[in-house]
């Protein structure tokens, strides 16, 4: 008797957690979609960078929701900490002399909107058809960072080394391309 009540309480608590997760997902997803649309429609480049920060932070929050804490922290450090700063430097260095009067959107933006809406329809149809009501595991635990680093330095050691060489060559290439001769 007491055991059934306890089990019932535990099931209710699980349901509460699930509802809370779904509410959190909905709020973060709404913010992300709004910010993403502002990134591609705003007419101020600096505002676009700020909205990009919102999207990237929202993605980090979704990673936390999925239990991928190391990826979330890396997302915040690399994307928000480094890439957005790089974008702001790019905006500052390429500020055209006739600021304010330039158009940022091409005249054929309607074709682009049609393309992306059609692609979204195809993607959503395929996803709903393919995965339907597939549920994520209810007892989603945060991934142990130790396991993740073990995987990187054993199973994925060769891709890891390749990506180091790629970063080095990108660094050298960026210097060579951007240098004044």
């Amino acid at each position: 008797m007491g055991f059934t009540i306890l089990a019932e309480v535990a099931r209710n608590a699980d349901a509460d957690v699930l509802v809370a997760q779904n509410v959190a997902f909905g709020i973060i997803a709404a913010i992300m979609i709004f910010s993403a649309i502002r990134v591609v429609t705003t007419s101020n480049v600096v505002h676009a960078a700020a909205f990009l920060v919102m999207v990237l932070a929202g993605a980090a929050a979704q990673f936390i929701l999925l239990g991928a804490e190391f990826v979330a922290v890396t997302q915040v450090m690399v994307y928000i900490g480094a890439i957005v700063v790089l974008f702001l430097f790019g905006i500052m260095l390429t500020r055209a002399p006739m600021q304010g009067t330039e158009k940022f959107t091409r005249d054929n933006w309607k074709v682009g909107a049609l393309t992306s809406v059609v692609m979204l329809a195809v993607l959503v149809f395929t996803l709903v058809d393919g995965f339907g009501e597939d549920k994520l595991p209810a007892d989603l635990m945060p991934t142990d960072t130790r396991v993740l680093s073990d995987a990187i330095f054993s199973t994925y050691l060769v891709p890891f080394e390749v990506i180091s060489v790629l970063l080095l060559s990108a660094l050298i290439g960026a210097i060579v391309i951007a240098r004044k001769d």
Partner: peptide, 24 residues
């Protein structure tokens, strides 16, 4: 949580990005 809610969110972001690449 459904798997699809994350996949559809990603699809929406992807298509927004494609629109930006085409129209900016």
């Amino acid at each position: 949580m459904l798997l699809n809610q994350f996949l559809i969110l990603a699809a929406i972001l992807f298509c927004t990005g494609v629109y930006g690449v085409i129209s900016r």
